[in-house]
Write a protein that binds this DNA or RNA. Structure first.
Lengths: 204, 204
DNA sequence: TATATATTGGAACGATCAGTCCACAAACCC
DNA sequence: GGGTTTGTGGACTGATCGTTCCAATATATA
């Protein structure tokens, strides 16, 4: 009894994500969102309530379509022993390729939450969890890649690796060269955690 | 022949720095700057030309009074062998203390340049140099702390360490706990780069 | 056709923004 | 005192912001 829905809110959120990712929350104006989603201002406010509501929807999209899939292999029940290296090499490839949003704009969550106007605490909380999950997932990857390591060393390498990822994501938008260097270094650290002994080459 | 200057532009820039550091460039309104500097709007525009002009002056203050002094010990002609550890421990202390701007707001340059509205390319360039200098200085510190390492390993540790610092600075404002964990990890990596062998304890 | 819902377009709101301008007060020199 | 420069206060501009509102239109069911 009434007109059926024409547009899909998920599509709208996806479109909005591009703009928010590009310009950030504050710098994105509602007219920008109208253009990107193809929706009228009225429809946006009807469906999402506010600019912030649409942003939240975009963040959900980002989490479920960008973050989770990439991290999934490290969170599987059984982690393949080279999953971590693949993950890091994947990131490095995306970064060096430079065509993807992740390379040109970094991580939406880090960008937004660490920007001086962090919007609010729920977003900060998301970033905290994000960091913990990232570190934990990577540590599991290290564990799979180096089962011979003691727990302590595994944990340390895991933290180190996640630090590199965070730093690389932070620098992506400003200093691509630096971001790639960081990822390279991280990969090296995983592949050969101690390939260089004090005296000379390799023990592996 | 005429009224002598009353206020010091450096003081004004210092006062403005606090506000910019706290709120970021975009979110800082000119009235905020009037209040912080104690100057009238007219004086601000007379002395600094624009909001951006005052921001640049604040960045200069930040570089010369916050960044350089802290990094100086690693850039001296002869680096003390434990200068790097002191530098990292200093950062960790500031972060854990939580009373300083650096702990509660992170790095002004990273915050600003990596925020979606990075203001402009000159600021991005500053961050790029910042990262290079940081990495280089830290690498020199590693060199002093571990003269027995081969150049390759020194370089790798240097990059690793600077990645931790960047990541910690990024997270400071959002995830202090995470930032401290990263710094701890970095310190550990420097103090005992291979204290844990695959089989058991220590070689040192 | 009648009715209900979806969607649009555009006008309008109050607020805030950076920046300009100018008359005026304050402090120095001669 | 007069002349000159430094600083202030406040009104103002033109633009943009997020948000609200409503009449009009489109598409479905009954």
């Amino acid at each position: 009894m009434g007109r059926t829905r024409i547009f899909d809110e998920r599509d709208a959120a996806r479109a909005a994500l591009d703009v928010f990712w590009d310009r950030g929350f504050e710098a994105t104006a509602v007219p920008d969102l109208e253009g990107a989603t193809g929706l009228s201002r009225s429809s946006i406010y009807h469906s999402f309530g506010s600019k912030r509501g649409l942003f939240d929807a975009a963040v959900d999209t980002y989490l479920s379509e960008v973050v989770r899939p990439r991290l999934a292999p490290l969170q599987a029940d059984t982690v393949a022993s080279d999953a971590l290296v693949e993950y890091m090499r994947g990131l490095r490839h995306v970064m060096a390729d430079g065509t993807r949003h992740l390379a040109t704009h970094g991580c939406l969550l880090l960008n937004t939450a660490t920007s001086p106007v962090g919007i609010d605490d729920t977003l900060r909380e998301i970033v905290r969890n994000y960091r913990r999950e990232l570190t934990h997932a990577i540590t599991r990857g290290v564990e799979a890649a180096h089962p011979e390591f003691r727990a302590e060393r595994t944990a340390r390498l895991g933290t180190t690796c996640s630090a590199h990822v965070i730093a690389a994501m932070t620098l992506a938008r400003v200093d691509t060269e630096g971001a790639i260097a960081l990822l390279d270094n991280a990969i090296q650290l995983i592949v050969d955690p101690n390939e260089i002994s004090e005296t000379g080459r390799t023990t592996a």
